[in-house]
Measured scan of single mutants.
Amino acid sequence: GSKLPPGWEKRMSRSSGRVYYFNHITNASQWERPSG
Protein backbone atom coordinates (compact mmCIF):
# COMPACT_ATOMS: atom_id res chain seq x y z
CA GLY A 1 0.00 0.00 0.00
CA SER A 2 1.43 3.32 -1.06
CA LYS A 3 0.66 6.56 0.72
CA LEU A 4 -1.36 9.34 -0.85
CA PRO A 5 0.29 12.63 -1.87
CA PRO A 6 0.41 15.37 0.79
CA GLY A 7 -2.99 16.78 1.70
CA TRP A 8 -5.02 13.91 0.26
CA GLU A 9 -7.27 11.64 2.26
CA LYS A 10 -9.81 8.97 1.50
CA ARG A 11 -13.45 9.94 2.05
CA MET A 12 -16.79 8.21 1.70
CA SER A 13 -19.61 9.91 -0.17
CA ARG A 14 -22.72 9.93 1.99
CA SER A 15 -25.09 10.13 -0.95
CA SER A 16 -23.67 7.32 -3.07
CA GLY A 17 -21.55 5.36 -0.60
CA ARG A 18 -18.63 5.55 -3.00
CA VAL A 19 -15.09 6.30 -1.92
CA TYR A 20 -13.48 9.47 -3.21
CA TYR A 21 -10.33 11.42 -2.44
CA PHE A 22 -10.26 14.86 -0.83
CA ASN A 23 -7.36 17.31 -0.57
CA HIS A 24 -7.76 19.46 2.51
CA ILE A 25 -5.01 21.83 1.34
CA THR A 26 -6.54 22.75 -2.02
CA ASN A 27 -10.15 21.67 -1.30
CA ALA A 28 -9.98 19.50 -4.40
CA SER A 29 -11.89 16.23 -4.62
CA GLN A 30 -11.83 13.47 -7.21
CA TRP A 31 -12.93 9.89 -7.73
CA GLU A 32 -9.58 8.74 -9.10
CA ARG A 33 -6.77 7.97 -6.68
CA PRO A 34 -4.31 10.87 -6.86
CA SER A 35 -0.78 10.06 -7.95
CA GLY A 36 2.32 11.94 -6.93
Rank of each mutant, 00 (worst) to 15 (best):
residue 1 G to P: 12
residue 1 G to V: 11
residue 1 G to I: 11
residue 1 G to W: 00
residue 1 G to Q: 12
residue 1 G to S: 12
residue 2 S to Q: 12
residue 2 S to E: 15
residue 2 S to A: 11
residue 2 S to W: 09
residue 3 K to T: 14
residue 3 K to P: 14
residue 3 K to F: 12
residue 3 K to Q: 14
residue 3 K to S: 14
residue 3 K to L: 14
residue 3 K to M: 14
residue 4 L to H: 01
residue 4 L to R: 02
residue 4 L to C: 09
residue 5 P to Q: 03
residue 5 P to A: 05
residue 5 P to T: 02
residue 5 P to H: 03
residue 6 P to D: 10
residue 6 P to V: 09
residue 6 P to L: 09
residue 6 P to T: 08
residue 6 P to G: 06
residue 6 P to I: 08
residue 6 P to H: 10
residue 7 G to A: 04
residue 7 G to F: 07
residue 7 G to Y: 06
residue 7 G to E: 04
residue 7 G to L: 02
residue 7 G to V: 02
residue 7 G to M: 05
residue 7 G to H: 10
residue 8 W to Q: 00
residue 8 W to F: 01
residue 8 W to A: 01
residue 8 W to T: 01
residue 8 W to R: 00
residue 8 W to H: 00
residue 9 E to S: 09
residue 9 E to L: 06
residue 9 E to W: 03
residue 9 E to Y: 04
residue 9 E to R: 05
residue 9 E to N: 05
residue 10 K to C: 14
residue 10 K to R: 13
residue 10 K to D: 01
residue 10 K to T: 10
residue 10 K to F: 05
residue 11 R to I: 07
residue 11 R to W: 03
residue 11 R to K: 10
residue 11 R to Q: 03
residue 11 R to H: 07
residue 12 M to T: 13
residue 12 M to Y: 15
residue 12 M to V: 15
residue 12 M to H: 11
residue 12 M to N: 08
residue 12 M to W: 15
residue 13 S to N: 10
residue 13 S to F: 08
residue 13 S to W: 06
residue 13 S to V: 11
residue 13 S to Y: 07
residue 13 S to P: 01
residue 14 R to S: 12
residue 14 R to M: 11
residue 14 R to G: 10
residue 14 R to A: 13
residue 14 R to V: 12
residue 14 R to L: 10
residue 14 R to E: 12
residue 14 R to W: 05
residue 15 S to I: 14
residue 15 S to C: 15
residue 15 S to D: 11
residue 15 S to G: 10
residue 15 S to L: 09
residue 15 S to H: 13
residue 15 S to K: 14
residue 15 S to T: 13
residue 15 S to A: 12
residue 16 S to I: 07
residue 16 S to H: 12
residue 16 S to L: 10
residue 16 S to K: 08
residue 16 S to A: 09
residue 17 G to S: 06
residue 17 G to N: 10
residue 17 G to I: 02
residue 17 G to L: 06
residue 17 G to M: 06
residue 17 G to E: 06
residue 17 G to V: 03
residue 17 G to D: 07
residue 17 G to P: 02
residue 18 R to V: 08
residue 18 R to Y: 07
residue 18 R to P: 04
residue 18 R to Q: 09
residue 18 R to H: 08
residue 18 R to A: 09
residue 18 R to F: 07
residue 19 V to L: 07
residue 19 V to D: 09
residue 19 V to W: 12
residue 19 V to H: 09
residue 19 V to S: 08
residue 20 Y to F: 08
residue 20 Y to Q: 02
residue 20 Y to T: 00
residue 20 Y to P: 02
residue 21 Y to W: 07
residue 21 Y to H: 00
residue 21 Y to G: 00
residue 22 F to T: 03
residue 22 F to V: 06
residue 22 F to E: 05
residue 22 F to A: 03
residue 22 F to P: 05
residue 22 F to N: 01
residue 22 F to L: 03
residue 22 F to G: 01
residue 23 N to L: 02
residue 23 N to H: 04
residue 23 N to F: 02
residue 23 N to D: 04
residue 23 N to P: 00
residue 23 N to S: 04
residue 23 N to R: 00
residue 24 H to S: 14
residue 24 H to W: 14
residue 24 H to P: 10
residue 24 H to Y: 15
residue 24 H to L: 13
residue 24 H to R: 13
residue 24 H to Q: 10
residue 25 I to A: 09
residue 26 T to K: 03
residue 26 T to Y: 04
residue 26 T to W: 04
residue 26 T to P: 00
residue 26 T to H: 04
residue 27 N to V: 04
residue 27 N to Q: 12
residue 27 N to W: 05
residue 27 N to T: 06
residue 27 N to L: 14
residue 27 N to D: 04
residue 27 N to R: 14
residue 28 A to G: 06
residue 28 A to I: 15
residue 28 A to E: 15
residue 28 A to R: 13
residue 28 A to V: 15
residue 29 S to W: 15
residue 29 S to G: 06
residue 29 S to L: 13
residue 29 S to R: 14
residue 30 Q to R: 04
residue 30 Q to V: 03
residue 30 Q to H: 04
residue 30 Q to P: 00
residue 30 Q to K: 02
residue 30 Q to F: 04
residue 30 Q to G: 03
residue 30 Q to I: 03
residue 30 Q to L: 01
residue 30 Q to D: 02
residue 31 W to Y: 11
residue 31 W to P: 05
residue 31 W to E: 07
residue 32 E to F: 06
residue 32 E to D: 09
residue 32 E to T: 08
residue 32 E to K: 05
residue 32 E to Q: 10
residue 32 E to N: 06
residue 33 R to Y: 14
residue 33 R to P: 14
residue 33 R to M: 11
residue 33 R to H: 13
residue 33 R to E: 13
residue 33 R to T: 09
residue 33 R to C: 09
residue 33 R to F: 15
residue 34 P to T: 00
residue 34 P to Q: 01
residue 34 P to R: 00
residue 34 P to L: 01
residue 34 P to V: 01
residue 34 P to C: 06
residue 34 P to A: 02
residue 34 P to S: 01
residue 34 P to G: 01
residue 34 P to M: 02
residue 35 S to E: 13
residue 35 S to M: 12
residue 35 S to I: 13
residue 35 S to H: 09
residue 35 S to R: 07
residue 35 S to F: 12
residue 35 S to Y: 11
residue 35 S to P: 12
residue 35 S to D: 13
residue 36 G to P: 11
residue 36 G to K: 10
residue 36 G to D: 14
residue 36 G to I: 13
residue 36 G to S: 12
residue 36 G to C: 11
residue 36 G to N: 12
